[in-house]
Simulated assay, not measured.
Amino acid sequence: MPQHSTVDRALAAALATDTGTPGGKDLDSALDTAASLLAADSTSDAELARRGEEFVRRAWQYGWQPADVARAVRGRLGEDHLRIAARLIVSETRRYGTALPHRWPEQLRRLAAEEKAATAPAPSRFAQATTVLELYRLLTGLPRIEPAGPVPGQAPAVPVAGEPKTFARIRALLAKAEATPYPEEAEALSTKAQELMARHSVDEALLAARRPAADEPAVCRIGVDAPYETAKAVLLDAVATANGCRAVWNSSLGFTTVVGFESDLDAVELLYTSLLVQAHSAMSRSEGEARKAGRKRTRTFRQSFLAAYAQHIGDRLRAVAHEVAAEQSSLLPVLAGREVAVTDRMEQMFPETVTTRVRGVTDAAGWHRGTEAADRAALRPGRAEVSGGTGRPAR
């Protein structure tokens, strides 16, 4: 068919791996040529979209999930590319109906909402074709990564009941903690939320002990965005370990893989997001106070703030963990068994890991303010085994 010929020629030119010159001029020229071919042939649109869905499907086979692809597009390209990627992803996954892995429906809902909210004016056919081809270059260049669950359509979806009532209460408490301007109230709300998480995890462990064959460690990925991504990864590691999970940060791809039991993974996503919101709110308040006093806060202040926040949150989480363990001493064998299962799964997925340390912690005021913010957040324990460790500020 004619449109196939146009698309084949355009993709052959745009996706060629041999760039010719070091500056990439040949690659840019090839992209312009390919975009011109597509712009001149309106009958190629449907076939071009179908090819895009094939590239998305290959990403699933390579271990990527919808949120992972969106994160890569947002980080390396632009909003126009993300809008097209969202459309392709939502369209491609319709073929599976309800046979989607756990967490995919929520990821797809967010992508669909982003696409619907886009208000950019319609570009010219040449500009649109260029954007599509740039996106396809990225999609076809995605590397294989460790799977974080089954591929859609090839395995039954994990049966998941509605959100537990406990989680609804936790969400409400954390939302109030994020919104209140009063540090003491934020601490009390956060502490109560973490207590509920800890007890919910214990309840899940009891249930698992009664039906061990049905409960195995699962995997999820959580984005860790720049700037100050190392400190954020340390914070996420502390939260993950506090909730009986293990975390491995992939700095080049901008996400952390978290291994744990399903309910614990939900708790990690929930708490990490809330803590990050509270950290940024506290940092903004500190910078506002500094500006009023005639002082300028810098990148080193923010880096030191978040590093201190992450480390001190980990310290507080460890303290809460000891309290929970003391109260539930009869459950120690069950909890230890779950920890072994999680560690085994993590080591199977990542046989080689290295420890990352936060560097550039040189602002004593930032460290002090970050520690104060962590004191006002409060939570439960953690061992930063994979991405943990920070340095004290240099004087």
Rank of each mutant, 00 (worst) to 15 (best):
A188S: 12
S44A: 15
D45T: 01
L88E: 00
K232Y: 04
V151H: 05
I89T: 09
R210T: 04
P152Y: 00
D266C: 04
L31H: 03
R376K: 13
R211V: 10
R109A: 08
P381E: 11
V224S: 06
A99G: 09
L189S: 07
D41G: 03
A319H: 10
A157V: 06
P147T: 10
A290S: 14
E289G: 15
A214P: 03
P22Y: 09
A112P: 06
I145N: 02
P121Y: 06
T355Y: 03
Y309R: 09
E216T: 13
H4I: 11
I145H: 01
V334R: 08
A326H: 07
L37E: 09
S330Y: 01
A307P: 11
E352H: 13
F350Y: 11
L142K: 07
T300S: 15
R199G: 01
V354I: 14
E195F: 06
G20M: 10
L111E: 03
L48S: 02
L174R: 04
R171C: 04
C245Y: 00
T119R: 12
L138H: 00
A85V: 06
T180G: 05
Y182F: 15
I89M: 12
A310K: 02
E79F: 04
V160P: 03
T241L: 04
Q65T: 11
S29W: 05
D225S: 14
A209Y: 12
A307E: 09
T17F: 04
R71D: 13
P123Q: 05
V258P: 03
R9S: 14
G382N: 02
S284G: 04
V386T: 06
H280D: 15
S281P: 04
T355H: 10
A267F: 01
R50L: 06
E269C: 02
E163K: 14
A373E: 02
A59T: 04
T343H: 10
L275S: 08
E115Y: 04
P121M: 09
G370F: 00
H4N: 13
A120C: 04
L48A: 04
A85E: 01
L207D: 08
I84C: 08
D18F: 03
P333L: 06
R51Q: 05
S284K: 09
V324Q: 08
R395N: 15
K192F: 07
L276V: 03
D203A: 13
